[in-house]
Every structure is written in structure tokens, then in C-alpha cells.
């Protein structure tokens, strides 16, 4: 494994999350009881999705500045891993909601916003497959990816701050739309942030694996820099 120190870091941080996440003392918040521990597993999905899609955005911009097919491959791989994290976040959120909000789907503004965001990214994948010409596909999907990110951010960061929701965070409370800062005590933060970094690193690792496969597959198409 080349340049592997950050991969080892990902393993260490996630193993730490999966042990400390079950063992530390957690505050008693509302009807959450022990499910507040989901904060160490469900919420990092969204944080790492934001990071991975951000990396994808950077490579889309780089492609438009310098049309090297390599950047398109990078953007695609990171977007796919980001979408995977989002789907996992949505599913885990639904499971959690079943036992705290009473039903898996409450048509909550945050649930709807995030589903729209995911559909926009599904459309990115559909768009990629719909354009047979490689250079055209790279250019169109790079433009679309930039559009998608800047509609995705308002949907998950701005809209939730404006409306009431069952989900913690957002309108009228401390913290970001993902979580209520007041619910987190110092112990939970010590597990939560390593979890976010760990999942982001694991997502990056998985993305680099598909990047390396695509690079080998398309090595005859990629121009030397």
C-alpha cells in the first residue's frame, strides 16, 4: 500500500470510534436514551459526504480549467463515494427516526431536502452515463457537478435553518443544521470529531481505489500532462 500512513490513521480513528462510541457515558437527552450514540455513526456519514462531494467539486473545477481526463475520473470517484455516504446517512437516519420520531419517514423538511439533494446527485450519475463521447461527458458532468454542489449546500445548510424540524439543530438552536451543539457534552465531542475524520479518510481511501482502477482502464485515453 503506497503512502499508507493516512489509511492507518483512518483504521485507528474508526476502531476508536467503534469502541469508545459504545463505552463512554452519554448525556440523557429527551427520548433518545442510548440511541444518542448514533451521533457517532449516523452524523459522520453526512459530514464525510460533504467533504467527499467538496473534493469532487474541486476536481470538476480543475477539469474545466485544464481538461485532463484524469480530473474527471477523480471527480466521478469522489462523487460516487459521497453519494454512498449520503445513502447510508439517509438509511441510518430513517432507522433512528423509527424509534425516536415514531416513523421512518415523517416528511420532515430536512428529510425532504436531503432526498432532493441526493436525487440531484443521482442525476449526475445518470447524466454521465447518458453522454457517450468521453470529452463531452467530462465537460458536461463537470459543469453539472458544480451546479449540483451549489444547490446541495443550500438544501442541507441554509434551508434547514429557516424551517422547524424534528431533527436537532437548525432554527433557533446552537450549532449547525445537523446537530444541536447544546446536546453534545465534552466526552461526546472527543468521539464525534475523530469519527468524522475517520469516515472522511475511509471515504477518500475507497475513492482512490476506484480512481486507480479507472486510471488503469482508461490509460490509453488520458493525455500526459
Amino acid at each position: 500500500m503506497r503512502k499508507s500512513w493516512w489509511k492507518i490513521l483512518a483504521v485507528i480513528l474508526l476502531v476508536y470510534t467503534f469502541t469508545a462510541g459504545f463505552l463512554i457515558k452519554v448525556p440523557n437527552v429527551g427520548n433518545l436514551k442510548e440511541t444518542i450514540r448514533n451521533l457517532f455513526f449516523h452524523v459522520p456519514m453526512w459530514f464525510s459526504q460533504l467533504i467527499l462531494l467538496g473534493i469532487s467539486l474541486v476536481y470538476s473545477i480543475r477539469y474545466l480549467r485544464n481538461p485532463n481526463l484524469k480530473y474527471d475520473i477523480y471527480a466521478e470517484a469522489f462523487a460516487k463515494t459521497g453519494i454512498l455516504m449520503g445513502v447510508l446517512g439517509l438509511v441510518t437516519g430513517s432507522i433512528w427516526a423509527t424509534y425516536t420520531w415514531g416513523e421512518p419517514w415523517s416528511n420532515d423538511p430536512k428529510q425532504i431536502a436531503v432526498v432532493i439533494a441526493l436525487l440531484i446527485y443521482f442525476a449526475y450519475l445518470v447524466l454521465r452515463n447518458a453522454v457517450p463521447d468521453i470529452d463531452k461527458r467530462a465537460k458536461v458532468s463537470a459543469v453539472y457537478n458544480i451546479f449540483a454542489y451549489f444547490i446541495y449546500v443550500p438544501l442541507i445548510m441554509i434551508l434547514p435553518r429557516l424551517v422547524e424540524s424534528l431533527h436537532p439543530g437548525g432554527k433557533g438552536v446552537e450549532g449547525n443544521p445537523g446537530l444541536n451543539g447544546a446536546d453534545l457534552d465534552a466526552t461526546m465531542r472527543v468521539v464525534f470529531w475523530p469519527a468524522v475524520i475517520g469516515w472522511a479518510l475511509l471515504g477518500t481511501w475507497i475513492s482512490t481505489l476506484s480512481i486507480r482502477i479507472y486510471l488503469i482502464r482508461d490509460k490509453n485515453l488520458i493525455n500526459a500532462e
Binding site: Y16, T19, A20, A186, T187, V190, V191
Partner: peptide, 8 residues
């Protein structure tokens, strides 16, 4: 990190 949680 773990020593921190032990203290807590």
C-alpha cells in the same frame, strides 16, 4: 483519546 474518555 481513550485516556481522555477514561478520565471522563
Amino acid at each position: 483519546l481513550l485516556s481522555g474518555t477514561v478520565i471522563f
